[in-house]
Amino acid sequence: MEQLQEIDNDKIITRNESPRSKQRRDIVYKILANKSAIVGGVLILFILIIAIFGPLIAPYDPVAQDMVNKLQPPSSEHWLGTDHFGRDILSRLIHGASITLLVGFLSVALGATVGVFLGIISGYYGKRTDSIIMRFMDILLAFPGILLALAIVSVLGGSLLNVIIAVAISSIPIFARIVRSSTLSVKKLEYIDAMRALGASDRRIIFKHIFPNVTSPLIVQATLSIATAIISASGLSFLGLGAQPPTPDWGAMLSDGRNFLYNAPHVALFPGIAIVIVVVAFNLLGDGLRDVFDPKTKD
């Protein structure tokens, strides 16, 4: 029987390339077959291109004021109109894209790094370590995300960097929880015991054997968290705690526009739409990835 198996394996090997690249290819196929992942992914790619090449595409200088043409409605000259300083809204949106994405990516990267670390430590060591870390996470979770971020920014002072830090801190507990629960289930597997029996250090077990097994839920959560982070960051900017003028930040633009909501609604409308598109795109991609990586939770 075993010999038969061997022959079979040999055939498979000669036909295909290495099994790992086959696994990867399978995942890529599944992602490509998932409509919401594709729509979200294409949108994000589009926004990314705009963010990178923005300065080359934008028709006007985003901070150049033109008081004669202030609050102009959309026209052939200014596609999305101008704001109360006569600045071209389209140019400002294009320049703002990179800020928005940067805030989203950086804050999630920062929050996820700390969260993953705490989660793995908590799940792996258990007992008192686990209790202390998770109770601290519970405290963070007890605050609504935006309120927590608001409190942190008020302490640190308003600036883009502080917004990133604040949003990152408020996203730590979600990552810590997800990673902790995955760690708990991976830790029980016999091959972790085998590594311990071989005398592997905790660090080796955590990084080489546990971490690679918790990445799938992590990727999904990170994508979804970027959307939340962008909303939180825009909210903080809207409240005047984020990027300071004249930086073309979408949240701040929305805030500027609210004073002219009656006679020039486009000033607030377009940044609002831009935020919605980005957030929806990340949510679609995140949901799609979840279906691919974790089919069990699919409704």
Partner: peptide
Amino acid sequence: RKHLQIIFQDPYASIN
């Protein structure tokens, strides 16, 4: 631990 090793029951769960 170099001198004491273990072989587990489930060959599907005991190797990464």
